[in-house]
Simulated assay, not measured.
Amino acid sequence: MVRIAVVGTGWQGQGHLSTMKKMPEIEVVGVCELNEETLLKAANKFAVKGFTDYVEMLEESKPDGVIICTPPEVREFLVREAAERGIHCFIEKPPAKSLEMAKKVEEILDRTGVINSVGFMYRYSPAVAYLKELIKGRRIALVRSAMLDGLALRPNWPRWFFNKEISGGPVFDQAIHIFDLSRYLLGEVERVTGFQDNLVVPKGGDFTVEDSFNLSMKYQNGILQNHTHTWSYPDVFTQIELISDQLHLTLDLVKGSVTGKVEGETIAFQTEENALYQLELAAFAKAIKEKNPELVLSTYKDSIQSLSVALKAMDALEVSTKITR
C-alpha cells in the first residue's frame, strides 16, 4: 500500500481525498491546511490526521508521496521539503504561475530524482489512449476544440475564480487542459493569437476575467487549431475535433468517446468508465510502488510546455484587448 499525504483542502484537494478513499492501493496518512476550521472539517470528513504545519506532517506521517493542491504560486517550498526527504510529488495544474517559478521547481525535482506528476487527468482517458493510437502515422491538418462551461453564471461559485490575478481566469483554470492534451496528441505549439470579450458577464468589481475567448494556434509541424472557450454557457461541453483528407474524428471528453471516420471506416468508441482522477492517482501510486516513473503520463518537465502555451495565450488575449480599445 502506498502512503499519501495531501496539502490543500479546497474542492480539488477534497476531490482527491474522496477519490483515494475508494482506492485500496492508497492509504491517506495526513492532510495539511493553514485554515484550522477548514482543516478540522476535512480531517473529520475523511477520518485522517490534520496538520497546520506542512513539515510536521511530512516528518510525522512519513508519506511515500504528497499531493499538492495549493495555488500555483505556492509550490517551490512544498516540493523542496517533500523531494529532499525522498517523498514523491503529485502537483495539481497549473504547474506554476510563471516559467521562472516552474524552472525552480523543475530544478528541485531533477536534483532529487523523485517521481513527479502533474494533474492533467485527460491524458489518462481510455478515449484519449484510443485516439492517440488511431491517429499514429496519419495526417492531421486542422483542429477545432471547444470547452464550454457556466462558471460565470453560477452565483454561489467561489469568487476567487473570477479574480484574474488569483485564478488566471479560464485560460489558466480550464483551457490549459486543452493545451496540454492537444500537445500530447499533436506536438508543440509555435504561435498563439486570439481575442477575448465579456458579452454575457461584464467585467467589474470582483469579476476581472474574460467570460469568453477564441484562440488560433499554429504547431511546429504546421497543424492549425482553433479553440473556443467560455464560462457563460448553461451546460458542459468539451470536444476536440481532428480533420484532414484521411480522417475526421471527434473526441468528446465529457462522454469519453471517439467518433467519426478514418479513411472511410466509421469509428465509434465509447469508454465504459471515465474515472480520470482515479486513473491519474492510480498511475502515480503504481509508479511509486514499482519505482517506475514511466507510468506517469504528465511529468512536471513536460507540463512546463503546457504552461508556456497558456502564458502565450494570456499574452495574446491581452494584446488583442489593447488593439481593440
Rank of each mutant, 00 (worst) to 15 (best):
M1L: 13
G8W: 06
G8R: 12
G13T: 09
Q14H: 06
H16F: 14
L17D: 02
L17T: 07
S18K: 15
M20E: 03
E25I: 09
E27S: 08
G30Y: 05
C32Y: 13
E33H: 07
L34C: 00
L34V: 15
N35G: 12
E36A: 13
K41V: 13
F51E: 00
T52P: 01
Y54V: 14
E59K: 14
E59G: 07
E60Y: 03
K62I: 02
P63C: 06
G65C: 02
V66T: 04
I68P: 09
T70C: 14
T70A: 10
V74N: 15
E81A: 14
A82L: 03
G86N: 05
G86V: 04
H88R: 03
C89Y: 01
P94S: 03
A96W: 04
V105M: 10
E106L: 08
D110C: 09
D110G: 00
Y124S: 11
L131P: 10
L134I: 08
L134C: 04
V143F: 05
V143T: 07
V143Y: 03
M147F: 14
L148V: 09
D149L: 13
L151E: 11
W157R: 14
P158A: 14
F161I: 07
G168E: 13
G169A: 07
G169D: 02
P170Q: 13
H177I: 03
G187H: 09
V192F: 09
F195M: 12
F195C: 07
N198M: 10
V201S: 01
V201L: 04
K203S: 12
D206L: 08
D206T: 15
T208I: 11
T208G: 09
E210T: 11
L215C: 02
Q220M: 06
N221P: 05
G222A: 06
Q225I: 01
H227N: 05
P234V: 04
V236N: 01
Q239F: 08
Q246M: 04
L249V: 02
L251W: 06
D252E: 12
G256P: 09
T259C: 03
E263S: 11
Y277K: 06
E280I: 15
A282N: 11
A282W: 06
A283I: 07
K286Y: 09
E290D: 11
P293R: 08
E294D: 15
L295Q: 06
K301A: 14
I304W: 07
Q305I: 00
Q305T: 02
Q305G: 10
A310F: 06
K322R: 14
